[in-house]
Design a protein around this nucleic acid. Sequence first.
DNA 1: TCCCGAATCAACGTATACATTAACAAACAC
DNA 2: GTGTTTGTTAATGTATACGTTGATTCGGGA
Lengths: 254, 254
Amino acid sequence: MPVSRTQPQRKAVTKAAAGRRPSTTARKAAVIALPVRALRGDDAYQAIRRRILDNVYPPGHQALESALAEDLGISRTPVREALIRLSNEGLVEVIPRHGMRVLPVSPLDMREIYEVLTALESAAAETLARRKPTDAELKPLVDATRDMGRALKANDLDAWAAADERFHQGLVELAGNRTLIDAVARLADRVHRARMFTLRLRPKPTTSTEEHTAMLDRIRAGDGRGAIEVNRAHRERAGRELLAIFERYRLHQL
Amino acid sequence: MPVSRTQPQRKAVTKAAAGRRPSTTARKAAVIALPVRALRGDDAYQAIRRRILDNVYPPGHQALESALAEDLGISRTPVREALIRLSNEGLVEVIPRHGMRVLPVSPLDMREIYEVLTALESAAAETLARRKPTDAELKPLVDATRDMGRALKANDLDAWAAADERFHQGLVELAGNRTLIDAVARLADRVHRARMFTLRLRPKPTTSTEEHTAMLDRIRAGDGRGAIEVNRAHRERAGRELLAIFERYRLHQL
DNA sequence: TCCCGAATCAACGTATACATTAACAAACAC
DNA sequence: GTGTTTGTTAATGTATACGTTGATTCGGGA
């Protein structure tokens, strides 16, 4: 779970013959640059994860290990390792004879996740408020909030969502508790998917910006209790709205 | 992470020739029962995990993939899969050329974990209090609290620790939020190890029982806020004590 | 004596081979 | 015609083979 520790950054190894049988003697690549980047190990994890987050593999999508391996141009071994991690994170389900299945985001799941996130972020907000962070430390949060407002004016929902994620991510990171960061990160992908589905179905998220500003005020004032309350209200409202959309459009059939 | 979903209960397949090369034609086992149960896949995970929790592999212990495979009588493949999961949970670290290393439980880690656990359990306590559970539902918690008292009188620290874990586990389960349960479970193993190390070094945990009773009272009264407060105080006190022991005995060198 | 470089070796990461077993279908009995 | 059983197939789980690469050690030069 400690992502930063368990995933030794692999430098981007490029292969001359990607996916080809490894030749006994390694030959230097032709002058022409490598057309396909060889995916292996953790890269397989990233690749599959990205396809899920980008909805290339939508909820309910099934794929056999061998099919994934072929898609990625690698063998089944690294694919299996990637699937173990993805199922750990609740993104996919491995069904013994039917490969993996991308898990749908059910309304129940969302309700659960929001409840947990609220608890975790509230703790982060309180810790942060107690620590009385400097303005410099809070700058990422201020910037993110500002960007949310700008994106909303420009009607750029994707930019709004990105800035909102940056705010929440930054809030948790500033608390400085690695275990907390990891716990949130573990839920982040699933929330991300749900929000992407609902992003264009819901009314303009105008109040979120104000709520973020209010939270920042509490944190600056060192008011831990107040920060908790604001965050809780923010999360609960957002969760309620998201669930309403979900149920109205029956997105959980996905 | 959704443990219950991602780990399809494997029925205890027994093998006639455990660990032996699989024979082409399956023969019925000799009349004499199978001496060694074949360990594979998820079993490897359980086996290694248990050895860590039981301190057979103490913090800092290193072992090569091949050594683990030999120990368990299986090949490296299922061992690797087990290690991926164990490192996900923060129990071990995989160091590229030096095998796996059982992670020590540092005071910093403990502080972080207790902070997160406090947030999660408080949420559980509040949810539970709001739901006004029946006495029948609360029975496991009442029983656990009672057993803690008994164990303390009998001076059976292991039984006390087991009952205490049962209480906290039961509390979270009663809240009925699977995501929450999984998030707590993910931290449980590390906490368990830390507590086992300190169990016999600290003064008798007499106040915990009272605090549990107080929490139950709040829950019964439907007083969510109060349950949060009691739980927070309980966790913070316990965390402080644990950390004090840790630092006094410099257990983090382990 | 200490430092640097080359050679050796072993552990890992990945690919592949193989036996097991569940799913599916066809054939048979009723 | 329907239900059951058996045979076939394909996907998995595990083992094993193999090339790559980093660690370690030994030797030579300063």
